[in-house]
């Protein structure tokens, strides 16, 4: 194997679009299976009653992370060719906070609103339209936001580079954090199940 296949020229551009469609189908399928197409289930995360969002997200992250480690280790995938979104500390922290506020008000994130819409939730479609409007507003304000958007750049940066640790150690640490988080989530769910807010 010599991954990434697309970058190494094993599959063409048109084929990559067909592949995108199938990846999307699987992505949407698993989101819906876990119940992330439901705004109430998503919102329950933030009232401690149903930690599905956290559990699913971090399970997916550590699954892919451990997989990437072994693919790289056996030389099946050249990790340095995988696209990394560059780090910009300030806009990503502020963006995350703003995103979180919008998430709990609207009840969805971009991927899950599509799943909600596809399963017939009208509020999911309204949320999508709201997002399109938000993107338009962002685009129009971009000339004024540009300097902040590009503030505090750190380039393409992973924890492995930043802490200068062996990749396996970093993977191990993050998996341990995730497992601890899962254990805590189960505790919180039991405790918060019947509590009034």
């Amino acid at each position: 194997m010599n991954g990434p296949f697309f970058i190494n020229g094993w599959i063409g551009e048109e084929a990559s679009l067909i592949f995108a469609l199938f990846i999307g189908i699987a992505f949407g399928f698993f989101l819906e299976r876990a119940g992330l197409g439901s705004a109430k289930k998503l919102a329950s995360q933030f009232y401690g009653r149903d930690m599905t969002v956290f559990k699913m997200m971090f399970t997916a992250i550590i699954t892919a992370m451990v997989g990437l480690f072994w693919f790289d280790y056996f030389g099946w995938l050249q990790l340095e060719l995988v696209y990394l979104t560059p780090t910009f500390v300030a806009p990503q922290i502020i963006g995350g906070l703003v995103f979180g506020v919008g998430f709990i008000i609207g009840g969805y994130c971009p991927g899950t609103s599509c799943v909600a819409g596809a399963t017939g939730s009208l509020d999911g479609w309204v949320n999508v339209i709201g997002m399109l409007a938000g993107i338009l507003v962002f685009g129009e304000l971009y000339p004024w936001l540009e300097s902040f958007y590009n503030a505090t750049p750190m380039g393409e940066l992973t924890f492995v580079d930043y802490f200068n640790l062996p990749a396996g150690l970093m993977v191990f640490i993050l998996v341990m954090i995730a497992l601890g988080g899962f254990w805590l989530s189960e505790k919180i769910e039991t405790k918060m199940a019947n509590k009034d807010l």
């Binding site: 699954t63 451990v66 062996p166 990749a167 396996g168 150690l169 993977v171 191990f172 998996v175 995730a178």
Partner: peptide, 17 residues
């Protein structure tokens, strides 16, 4: 599942050191 994840990441730790 948790045990499986732990094993794989522990092996990753050993392998990369």
């Amino acid at each position: 599942l948790a045990f499986f994840a732990l094993t794989l990441s522990l092996l990753a730790l050993i392998a990369s050191i």
